[in-house]
């Protein structure tokens, strides 16, 4: 990894941390505040690609592990890694990597805007929703012994919000790609 890649990942990790500290943003059309931190994870993949995006999230997780209260609501410390929802947290790492990997493959600078947005959306959906929730549910079911079905029922409530975040990530990803292209292009 070049120094620039390292710095990009560190800056994005700082953005993810900052997104956990700002008050939740209200969406225009539904009266639900969204916490922006998991949006930041999808954005890391969409904007930086697999390797740097994954590294950015890894840095956030390391900050959590060393006891900095960097998660939304001032959570942090090793205890978060043994909490029932730890699967979602560790899942971020894979979410960012998968989102980035797919973004690099789906999206090309020569495509039309609608194709680019659709590509980013599918990538964020696969990483941020499918992968993250699968790991979250798996750990919730295993760690608490509640069984997969119960864990999945509890998980369902959070899926619409995360699908919405994937959509926001797709639009933001395209806007950033126009303004300041960083996503590695496939050879």
């Amino acid at each position: 990894m070049s120094t620039r890649d390292l710095v990009l990942a560190a800056l994005f990790a700082a953005i993810i941390v900052a997104l956990g500290l700002v008050p939740p943003i209200m969406l225009g059309f539904i009266p639900v505040p969204i916490t922006a931190q998991s949006l930041g994870v999808m954005l890391a993949g969409v904007i930086l690609g697999a390797k740097r995006g994954g590294f950015a999230v890894l840095l956030v997780l390391l900050l959590v592990a060393i006891g900095l209260p960097v998660l939304s609501g001032g959570r942090g410390g090793l205890a978060t890694f043994v909490s029932p929802t730890a699967g979602y947290l560790v899942g971020w790492l894979f979410a960012a990597y998968v989102t980035g990997y797919l973004s690099e493959r789906f999206v090309d600078r020569s495509q039309s805007s609608i194709v680019q947005i659709a590509g980013f959306f599918l990538a964020a959906l696969a990483g941020g929703v499918v992968v993250d929730h699968a790991l979250g549910v798996a750990y919730l079911a295993w760690g608490t012994g509640t069984g997969l079905m119960t864990a999945f029922m509890g998980d369902l409530a959070f899926i619409p919000g995360d699908v919405l975040k994937a959509l926001i990530a797709a639009f933001a990803g395209r806007a950033v790609m126009i303004g300041y292209p960083l996503l590695p292009q496939r050879a």
Partner: peptide, 27 residues
Amino acid sequence: KPRPLTLAVPLIILTLRNADEIAAAID
């Protein structure tokens, strides 16, 4: 009204644009 998109995009671009300078400083 602040919206997720209009907040996130400038924030990300403005922040990441510093990467070159910081990397150069480190090197």
